[in-house]
Design a protein around this nucleic acid. Structure first.
Lengths: 249, 249
DNA sequence: CGGCTTTCTGCGTTTTTGTGCAGTAATTTA
DNA sequence: TAAATTACTGCACAAAAACGCAGAAAGCCG
């Protein structure tokens, strides 16, 4: 088993179960605990997991601990959310994934807006529920504790029954070559279904996610209609995407 | 259980109940009181809780003054929750409605418990998600903002596909003549479906709901297997229900 | 192709960390 | 003030981490 492969597996396990033990990983993959420890350390340095004595935890596990950095990217997300909201009008059926950017958008929805929001993300649903004029449809199925969304065949089947006007995807990684990618298999399946069920696909991504990629592909750039970042549309970083036929906001 | 994990659990408990006892935490998590004390100390040093003799308090507690009757009915619900939890064992499929009593039960589930919980109540789902060993299945459909649960034909159809071991119903009103009743049409439909899909039906009701009724019937007393209140089972108020063949706890 | 470097992995040893226990001091409660 | 809880201290033991090292594998290059 290759190092990269191993780390991808570890990351997946962490995101799935919220925690991993060095000892159990070691026996699962058949490498020494030393190697596991080194992998965990690398992943921790990249900020993908939180290393603790005995194993590692997923980032979402200890939500509380996101200091100064959070406020900074909060503002970025507000800019993105504003642009996204400008695409919504009354009466629309809107499909959304989860993720902090989507949550920010949900919070900023204008109170007069009348629309139907469909999502499997618990966090997003909670936000939508606060709004007076929004109909909320919850996609049900097994809940993934790490990503706090519903996942599974039922959820996907349900999404496939829908014909939404527009779909907002919180984007974990996007680049020219691989399109949009993610690191959780089940989340990927869900997003794929969402793309199939929507007339227009909007990707919300903060700039640091641009030109990065993750192990699993959701879809190529050709699936995307609109890309929203906190940068001005004419930023050179975004030029390749505009050239690929995507509307950049 | 990892140290960080344990501390996260403790913190969650503190924020939930506003206080924790070292002794009860120790037996819940199965570590020595010494370890708990050291955890509390660390959390206190980080300013996340207030350590006191015998346990710890939440920060918010020191400020807010709870009206006595809130605490009182909180305690009633805790008694009910405890009795209800005694009916649950590992591996069970458990269907639950919403309501504050159910929420209290969800909060008090022992961390070692491995079971599958199925619900359409957003609040309950959020609680279940915090527990390390519980599988959570979310019933999806349109969300009723007033009751904060999913309602509708899809939700009912989904429930009908389930064969649960036990079903816990938060009860709004119960009396000898009308059985269990409620005042929300859609909630009633859902609870009816839940009753049909479960082997054993448990009603959780605080004493003040006993011998009251609401406009819409969910089901007669014959549908109920177990009735749980905060009163001792031999309380005369409950005698008619025991006579009707219901196990009263 | 052969030699060189670099990277990766596993092993043994030393440190550090986490946990429980016993005895004692401090505190609550009656 | 006495009895009972709870807190603290030092210690012992186990588990995990860190460190240095050596062999294996992969990549590079003339």
């Amino acid at each position: 088993m290759l190092k990269k492969e191993r780390q991808a597996y570890i990351l997946h396990q962490v995101n799935l179960h919220n925690k991993v033990l060095s000892s159990s990983l070691s026996s699962e993959i058949n490498v020494s605990e030393d190697t596991i420890r080194r992998d965990l350390q690398e992943l921790a340095e990249e900020g993908k997991i939180i290393k603790v004595h005995g194993g590692a935890l997923s980032h979402s596990f200890s939500q509380v601990h996101f200091p100064a950095d959070v406020v900074y990217s909060q503002n970025q997300k507000k800019i993105i959310a504003e642009k996204a909201i400008s695409l919504i009008s009354n009466g629309m059926f809107i499909l959304t994934s989860g993720g902090t950017t989507i949550l920010e958008m949900a919070r900023m929805l204008p109170p007069q807006l009348k629309a139907t929001f469909i999502s499997g993300s618990i966090g997003a649903i909670l936000e939508y529920m606060h709004h007076p004029n929004i109909e909320v449809i919850l996609i049900g199925d097994k809940i993934s504790k790490s990503s706090k969304i519903t996942v599974g065949a039922e959820a996907i089947a349900k999404i496939k029954q829908i014909r939404a006007d527009i779909c907002f995807l919180g984007t974990n990684a996007i680049d020219i070559q691989h399109g949009i990618t993610d690191n959780d298999w089940e989340v990927v399946q869900l997003k794929k279904a969402m793309i199939e069920s929507s007339q227009k696909i909007v990707c919300l991504a903060i700039a640091e996610k641009i030109n990065t990629f993750q192990p699993i592909q959701i879809g190529g750039l050709d699936k995307i209609d609109i890309l929203i970042t906190e940068l001005p549309p004419e930023d050179p970083l975004l030029k390749p995407y505009a050239d690929a036929g995507i509307t950049v906001l």
